[in-house]
């Protein structure tokens, strides 16, 4: 049992060495992973691309957080996150390179703490590097585990 304490990010939802042809291919694969873990229906995937077209979900430090438009929320079955670690960085527009995607499916607020943790990790160069270099789902989950909710591992 090494999922995050809140159950939003599970080991099955973390993939490494993913080959993406471009930004949209990466977003599509993020969506498919959310479908695979039962978080969203197929219709969520195009809504993620739509959102990406409106405003980039790149947040800095080589990370993007793809998710749907407001209209796509109706395809969410349960709140969940998924992590895609890309085999090689892809161009995310405006000269930005992304090598890690944190895909989001959410109806409510439960993922607020994990995203706040992600922001803190990315603002700390050492922890950001650990996240990019992680090779196991356990490591990724440990890094994103909100403080104060760490499990006894």
């Amino acid at each position: 049992m090494s999922d995050t304490a809140d159950g939003l990010l599970t080991e099955q939802a973390v993939r490494f060495g993913v080959h993406a042809a471009d930004r949209y291919d990466a977003v599509r694969q993020c969506g498919e992973l959310l479908v695979a873990v039962g978080a969203v229906t197929e219709d969520y995937v195009p809504a993620m691309r739509e959102r990406e077209d409106e405003i980039s979900t790149h947040i800095g430090a080589g990370v993007a957080i793809p998710h749907s438009t407001a209209a796509g929320k109706k395809y969410v079955r349960r709140d969940a996150l998924a992590v895609l670690v890309l085999a090689e960085p892809v161009d995310w527009g405006e000269g930005e390179q992304v090598s890690l995607c944190v895909a989001i499916a959410a109806l409510g607020d439960r993922h607020l703490d994990i995203l706040a943790e992600l922001a803190e990790v990315l603002m700390d160069p050492d922890r950001a590097e650990q996240l990019h270099l992680a090779t196991t789902a356990g490591e990724v989950i440990r890094l994103l585990q909100p403080e104060g909710k760490a499990e006894n591992v």
């Binding site: 959102r51 947040i59 998710h67 959410a106 607020d109 993922h111 995203l115 706040a116 922001a119």
Partner: peptide, 28 residues
């Protein structure tokens, strides 16, 4: 933000932590 699901949630979470003891409420 647009969907209130991604970036705004992340920033709200960060601000909540930073303003924890100030009594200011942060929501997205």
């Amino acid at each position: 933000c647009d969907a209130g699901m991604g970036s705004s949630v992340m920033l709200a979470g960060t601000l909540k932590r930073q303003l924890k003891n100030t009594g200011v409420i942060v929501e997205h």
